[in-house]
Design a protein around this nucleic acid. Structure first.
Length: 663
DNA sequence: TTAGGGTTAG
């Protein structure tokens, strides 16, 4: 006897077990062979899958089907294949089931009997199905299509439809799979799941969800595999609400406790949707975890900018004696890049080399390029890039973005051309980096060319990041009207898109236009945030436009309800002070919710020196040194202020005080 | 028929 312990929800005493193909499972008083029962259950409109529950995450687990006593009573005794060997024994609320050799023998004999009774027709169908399954397994679309034609000619389309759906789905020809499924409504969860899985794998989450609904509408219930696929789909489109409902269903069916794959899919779904707290919560409750589960969580943290947290998990995972593989390294390298952890990144690089993981792994190689580029070690990024076995658009993009980000825009543009010369077409990411590079160096002609290409390829509107980079490029190059035109043509825009345009107007000193934009974005349900606030104040400061700056400050705090932060206060105090409006600057400081900040007082003090205001200057100085006795700059400025006002004694006094406090 | 990886905006 081949025995294995399954963890399961308390075994429902009123149910019987039903064995699936392959292994015989004795998990109740009576067992049936699933294949023998299916026709009967269909006839009686008992939904076999609705009743099924999976006891384990093991690949070769049987799928017992639980029936209520009433439903079991409807099953004719003739389909009864064997009696169970033993009752499951409860240990600590878990149950122990056994797979038996006797069961396998039974299944074999059933197959033999089936074969001997099979007519010529059904044996032809069986062999078609078997070959189709083989095509699916080896992704042999060509052979699968030929077979499809044969089957059509032989008139067995209906009988083979499930296998055809699965074959097309596995081979990635989803339209064909869908077409067949729509023509021949399937009763087979496996075929539905294959199609749903196909959509999920291609990132077509919406289609996967559609078919998930359709499948249930047809009276079929998803199994653990379907759930895993649909969770992936939810993650890919950020459908956290739907994912949460699926989670409830999975928990209700008790599938989570023993199925690490399902648990991982759940962690990944929440992580991809950015619900990291929830992902962590699910993760901690799992009965078992492996390196994939950990990686799903780590990736979640990486993708949502929590590099430090990702690192914590990475360390913790190893404390639990689980060791990273190429995929874990790829995502942790991204975290190293994000949080500029060059040392850690280099150590991981060594480890990767030691394990020989880099040889044919372009994803891992690109992650290394990214890490070095982000950390500003462009030579190493370049070196790593040069050693890649081959390059794709992502590895090029990582390098190009690295050069752009570190101000080497000409180099970025050169590589952009080189990439194309090697026959690789840019994608939205590459275009975005290029627009950023054009913006940084004011290369308007080049930027326009890229704009043309983006339009020609129909990419405009496909990525809000790209759209924003385009608006920003025109704004930074000083053609704000063009930036506005682009923005107007966009179907969707967010705070960042508006921010790029508003910053453009502010930098050109077009205050009225900037305000119109603020109003328009508010009409679209978007409120200006801290970054927009800063860009407006900085622009005014840069242009020396005091009144405008003061007006923006009042407008944003009072009308748009943005709470100014310290940077905004410092900026406005500096702006007013430098323009000689010491009284206004003092009023802003007095109205500040938190005045104990050295930078604000320093800005005021500097303005007082500029305008020779010893009275307010002394006041600012006292606050500044109260916060930091060793504020050398404050002593120097104050002494200078007194000296220029011919208050020599006071100047000397401050100097002495400064030296004393320095010691 | 099932789980994890690399590049993008103000």
């Amino acid at each position: 006897m081949n025995e294995r312990t399954w963890m399961a929800k308390p075994y429902p005493s009123e149910c019987i077990g039903l064995a699936d193909e392959g292994h015989h499972l004795s998990c109740g008083k009576v067992s049936y062979h699933r294949r023998c029962l299916e026709p009967f259950l269909h006839e009686k409109r008992i939904n076999i899958n609705r009743l099924s529950g999976k006891l384990s995450g093991y690949k070769d687990a049987s799928k017992p089907i639980f029936l209520s006593k009433e439903e079991a009573a409807k099953i004719p005794a003739s389909t009864l294949k064997t009696n169970a060997i033993k009752e499951p024994a409860s240990v600590n609320g878990l149950f122990k089931f056994s797979t038996t050799d006797q069961g396998s023998q039974l299944n074999q004999s059933v197959r033999k009997a089936d074969k001997s009774h099979a007519s010529g027709k059904s044996s032809r169908i069986s062999s078609y199905v078997a070959v189709l399954r083989n095509c699916a397994k080896h992704r042999d679309l060509h052979k699968g299509r030929l077979l499809h034609e044969d089957i059509m000619k032989a008139g067995f389309l209906e009988e083979c439809s499930d296998a055809l759906v699965t074959m097309y789905a596995k081979c990635g020809l989803l339209t064909k799979a869908k077409e067949i499924l729509n023509t021949y409504p399937s009763r087979d969860v496996l075929s539905w799941t294959a199609l749903i899985s196909g959509y999920a794998q291609k990132g077509l989450g919406k289609d996967a969800l559609d078919y998930f609904e359709k499948m249930q509408g047809a009276g079929l219930s998803p199994d653990a595999v379907t759930f895993a696929c649909i969770l992936k789909a939810c993650g890919s489109i950020g459908a956290a609400d739907k994912g949460e409902r699926i989670h409830d269903e999975i928990a209700y069916q008790g599938l989570l406790e023993s199925d690490v794959v399902l648990g991982t899919a759940l962690v990944d779904m929440y992580a991809k949707c950015g619900a990291l707290g929830k992902a962590q919560q699910v993760f901690q409750k799992l009965f078992s975890r492996n390196v994939i589960t950990w990686s799903a969580l780590i990736t979640g943290y990486c993708q949502h900018g929590e590099g430090a947290k990702a690192f914590e998990c990475y360390e913790q995972m190893q404390c639990e004696n689980l060791f990273p593989d190429a995929k874990t390294y790829a995502c942790i390298l991204k975290a190293c890049g994000d949080i500029r952890e060059l040392d850690k990144g280099e150590k991981i690089h060594d480890e990767i080399l030691r394990q020989g993981l880099l040889d044919n792994d372009i994803v891992l190689g690109t992650a290394l390029v990214y890490m070095y580029a982000q950390c500003g070690v462009l030579i190493k990024a370049q070196e790593t890039f040069n050693r890649l076995p081959y390059r794709d658009v992502t590895s090029w993009s990582a390098l190009i973005e690295g050069y752009t980000q570190h101000g080497q825009c000409e180099k970025a543009m050169e590589y952009f051309e080189q990439m194309r010369a090697e026959g690789i077409s840019p994608n939205v990411v590459t275009f975005t980096s290029m627009l950023k590079a054009c913006a940084a160096v004011g290369a308007i002609a080049k930027g326009e060319k890229i704009h043309d290409e983006i339009s020609k390829e129909g990419l405009l509107g496909s990525s809000i990041l790209l759209d924003t980079a385009l608006v920003d490029m025109y704004a930074k190059c000083g053609v704000v009207s063009r930036a506005h035109k682009v923005l107007n043509g966009l179907y969707s825009r967010d705070i960042s898109t508006w921010a790029a345009l508003i910053a453009g107007y502010a930098q050109q000193g077009h205050c009225e236009q900037a305000i119109i934009c603020l109003e328009q974005m508010q009409e679209e349900g978007l409120s200006p945030d801290h970054t927009i606030f800063s860009s407006l104040l900085n622009a005014c400061s840069h242009l020396g436009r005091v009144d405008e700056g003061h007006m923006y400050f009042a407008l944003l705090t009072k009308r748009f309800g943005v709470k100014p932060d310290l940077e905004h206060y410092t900026c406005i105090v500096d702006l007013l002070g430098r323009a000689g409006h010491i009284d206004k600057a003092v009023r802003v400081i007095q109205e500040m919710p938190y005045s104990n900040n050295i930078e604000v007082w320093s800005a005021l003090l500097a303005a007082c020196r500029q305008w020779g205001n010893t009275y307010i200057g002394k006041w600012a100085f006292e606050h500044a040194v109260q916060l930091d006795k060793k504020n050398t700059a404050a002593y120097v400025i104050m002494a200078d202020l007194y000296a220029s006002a011919a208050m020599r004694e006071d100047a000397k006094g401050i100097q002495v005080l400064g030296v004393e406090n320095e010691a």
